[in-house]
Design a protein around this nucleic acid. Sequence first.
DNA 1: ACTTGACTAGGGGCTAGCCCCTAGTCCTTC
DNA 2: GAAGGACTAGGGGCTAGCCCCTAGTCAAGT
Lengths: 209, 209
Amino acid sequence: MKVLIADDHGIVRSGLRMLLERQTDIEVVGEASDGAEARDMAIRDRPDLAILDVKMPKLTGLQATREIRAQAPDVSILILSMYDDERYLFEALKAGASGYVLKAQADSDLIDAVRAVERGEPFLTPEAQRALIQDVLGEGSHREDELTPREQEVVKLVAEAHTNREIAEILHLSEKTVENHRSNAMKKLGMRDRVELVRYAIRKGLIEP
Amino acid sequence: MKVLIADDHGIVRSGLRMLLERQTDIEVVGEASDGAEARDMAIRDRPDLAILDVKMPKLTGLQATREIRAQAPDVSILILSMYDDERYLFEALKAGASGYVLKAQADSDLIDAVRAVERGEPFLTPEAQRALIQDVLGEGSHREDELTPREQEVVKLVAEAHTNREIAEILHLSEKTVENHRSNAMKKLGMRDRVELVRYAIRKGLIEP
DNA sequence: ACTTGACTAGGGGCTAGCCCCTAGTCCTTC
DNA sequence: GAAGGACTAGGGGCTAGCCCCTAGTCAAGT
């Protein structure tokens, strides 16, 4: 089985190569250090599988996935995410990836994923499966990831370190209304205080760190 | 040569292990998935070398370095940074690390670094050496780290949305002491609440958004 | 017409956060 | 051995934050 590795960290690439080549039937046929290189190599060399890091220069793993799937549909793709959450899971599947593995997980998960892809099956870790099920089931609860415009405004101002009173003045509202918007936003997002809201706001690009 | 590996990503740990154990005289005697575990294992098992990722839960690699150097000075330390810059280089050296290697670099650099540390020599990649020289030449002003190690620990935990009480439990301190560290940190940084500390912590790379 | 959801506002209560202060033990440095 | 800084801990006080609840208006969809 011919595998292509793409990650912008040389040391990590070498580590992955060692890890994979301990399996006698897996051969790492190439290493790419950015998304564009990964795409070009995948399309030119047609490996059985390309393992792509999400975060890479030039093209992200997801962008590379789309282009590889379009031009070399026989190349399967496994996304490797360094982030300890599933925020790219859906996008990865939509882009055409066969599997999604977090770097935080055990090496055996990666091998399992490669084996699954080899058999033509998709591979999701239990965490990823749970996230996916939650998403399908949860029209009511977790699906409401989206805040209303007003809630977003309030969250943004909270994350900019304004007090409720200041926000009330800025938006010409009562302090109580501000509290309600903040509280509703936190409830929707499953958060417990403004500190968590700050990190959410930064992740969402509502404010700069 | 007995080596301890610490990185919060299981797959990366396994990769590093494979990479290192290709050298016949290197034996990986332990893996830690966070900074506190790394510190405990280093102090208990006394490996010849501990390879620590900068960004880890509970304690950063730098915080772990300080504690290991204090309690087990015979354990050499190599800092592995995932960031493509040298922003932690000086702090790492000050904390007592023998070497600083970026994950973006080739695997041979890591092996070279291990060999250098084995001979009792410090190891810096050419990029790191250049940054160091620049700093010595450029001299003085901006090298004020501002926060003490303890203050940084507290700030990190605050930014991870822990309450003062939780932080006190995690660090085995009284709530009052935690308040003092937080308050002193905020005063030094000219900040007015924990929300601003979160953004500071993210900018400084103490936590991920 | 009726329901639903966003937006608004308030009452009332508890606690965490933030501030001021003092004070002790270790250090290192001068 | 004195001085300064880091780290520890506590007293006492005020307020902002967070929670529960109700309740109104308005626009949009069924």
